[in-house]
Design a protein around this nucleic acid. Structure first.
Lengths: 112, 112
DNA sequence: TGCAATATATCGCTATGCAATGTATTAACA
DNA sequence: TGTTAATACATTGCATAGCGATATATTGCA
């Protein structure tokens, strides 16, 4: 796991990306997928995950529907039209950001 | 410029990296270098820069010396032994982080 | 029965960034 | 000479984001 400060601002992008590629997912499922796809490097804690899902739903990027699974109510999230646009913007921004950071991290002794 | 949330946690790494490669630099110089090397994409605001320099000096990663330039007192920062170790750790962490994010950002429809 | 996994939720604390604002020196230029 | 811009450092106070801790309930399995 990373010093966590690095993750800031990436969670929303990751979630939007996942929901952009999957019809619907529920919170726990998202956290498991992130863990899986990141090979255990990123574990989205509940204290972060659920507030983000609520917030992005409020903002209109996601929509939620309750589905009864046995006696349990599962909350499925899916992406909205606005969410799809946002996903694209965020992913592009993240790519650009990573290019810039790569540039900055290049060894550079005495070039100036 | 990026949504700023992405930058969180990277400033310290960037500063440590610069000071690891240069004997000494002063605040303004650092901000200009970051702007230059990032091709204008990252502009370290003073409100972020100076508090970070002070903090990292307190923590023992940097040391500061005042130098008189004409009537002006310039504050030069250089990296300590602890700072060099920290720089390595931080840079490695950033690299790992970027690999993981790259992995997560790969298109992935219906693989599962 | 009891434990682990599944599933969601919230409170309160911490870390970080940064706009705004202030001060002072130095250089350029009209 | 007066003014503007660049250089150089600093601090206050607000906003954002993450997340550990904690709580609750269901489900599956040994």
């Amino acid at each position: 796991m990373y010093s966590s400060q690095l993750l800031k601002g990436t969670y929303q992008t990751v979630i939007l990306k996942l929901l952009n590629e999957n019809k619907r997912m529920y919170g726990y499922e998202i956290s498991q997928r992130v863990k899986e796809e990141s090979k255990g490097e990123i574990q989205l804690p509940e204290g972060s995950l659920y507030p983000i899902l609520h917030k992005m739903t409020e903002e209109g990027f996601l929509k939620m529907e309750k589905v009864n699974i046995g006696r349990r109510v599962r909350r499925y999230y899916s992406i909205t039209t606005a969410g799809t646009s946002e996903a694209v913007v965020r992913m592009e921004e993240l790519e650009r950001f990573m290019s810039t950071m790569k540039l900055l991290m290049q060894p550079n002794t005495g070039t100036a």
